[in-house]
């Protein structure tokens, strides 16, 4: 069995599942977090664990209610680090205004580093959950801010790159930002958080599941100069790099401008941009560049050279 009461189930591979009860639906998700290093510019594993789960609920259009927290800690783990992580968890849940109502801690010699699992429960009106498979032809595609920051910050700090950079992870709970947009009556047809695989993955998945194509414009995609220049040097595609505090929305065309305004009023949405449109003219994701249109692939791990 992969779904309950006709709700969204496992087979949808959406950001969360739902259980319809009365005129509401309970929205439910779980995520195990490991990250190397556990402290990185802009955040730490604690903030990541809370944000990841809150965001998975929020991009369903749900109001996150509560989280559970399960820590698996390797033997001999530094206590100060643990304290810092717990403190960060608390701060982040306060920021998101989501309670942590149950938890568990295990010490194990079977793990190399700390693992944090968080499950989350949210609530949404029956039938109002926002899927990632409902992009409509003509919808405006909006991304809530600069992309690629989390993945690149992690990569550089994991590999010990000590050169001066300002790149920080964007990890943050974005439920308040999304709530604001929903409260203003903006019609969001589909929503997804572009985490692993980055924007390229999120857009491809939304397009495929919704059976539409998505055209985006290279010059509209918000990327900081720093991320762009480091990607340019390393040969990485910022579209494929993970984010942890961003959302991609497919918004009814008429609502797009107002949606952008609302997003930009919020500090987490100040770099929001309309990056493209959904179309029936093609399948998949196609990006307009200064020299023609590029097909944006679903990322598959490391990039593979293809140029002669």
């Amino acid at each position: 069995i992969t779904s309950v009461n006709g709700g969204i189930g496992l087979e949808s591979l959406d950001d969360s599942a739902t259980i319809p009860i009365g005129d509401k639906e309970i929205v439910f998700t779980v995520d195990g977090h490991t990250v190397k290093p556990i402290f990185f510019p802009g955040g730490d594993i604690g903030r990541l664990a809370v944000s990841g789960t809150v965001n998975d609920l929020a991009v369903m259009g749900a109001k996150p209610l509560a989280l559970s927290l399960s820590l698996i800690i390797p033997e001999g783990f530094n206590l100060e680090d643990l304290e810092k992580i717990v403190k960060s968890i608390n701060e982040t849940s306060k920021e998101a205004e989501v309670a942590i109502i149950t938890g568990d801690t295990k010490v194990s010699d079977g793990v190399d580093d700390i693992i944090i699992s968080t499950a989350g429960i949210g609530i949404v009106d029956r039938g109002k959950a926002i899927r990632d498979c409902n992009v409509q032809e003509g919808d405006a595609i909006i991304v809530s801010g600069n992309i690629g920051e989390h993945g690149l910050a992690i990569l550089l700090s994991r590999e010990g790159f000590d050169f001066e950079t300002n790149i920080k992870s964007d990890v943050a709970p974005i439920n308040k930002l999304i709530e604001k947009v929903l409260n203003e009556g903006i019609q969001i047809n589909a929503m997804k958080d572009p985490t692993r695989g980055g924007l390229a993955d999120a857009l491809n998945e939304m397009a495929e599941k919704s059976n539409v194509g998505i055209t985006i414009f290279e010059d509209k995609i918000p990327i900081s100069d720093e991320v762009q220049s480091i990607c340019d040097i390393l040969g990485l595609d910022p579209l494929t790099i993970a984010n942890e505090g961003k959302v991609v929305m497919a918004v009814k065309k008429e609502d797009a401008e107002r949606c952008l305004e609302i997003l930009r009023e919020h500090p987490l949405g100040k770099n929001a941009e309309l990056i493209g449109y959904a179309t029936k003219e093609h399948k998949g994701v196609v990006m307009e560049t200064i020299v023609g249109r590029r097909i944006v692939d679903m990322p598959i791990g490391d990039p593979i050279p293809r140029v002669c």
Binding site: L155, E159, F161, F163, I230, L234, D302
Partner: peptide
């Protein structure tokens, strides 16, 4: 300078360095 420093880093860590 910056590129060279990143290239050194990239080469040492074999970041996005496919084998050919």
């Amino acid at each position: 300078e910056k590129e060279l420093k990143l290239l050194k880093f990239q080469l040492e860590k074999k970041l996005n360095c496919p084998i050919t």
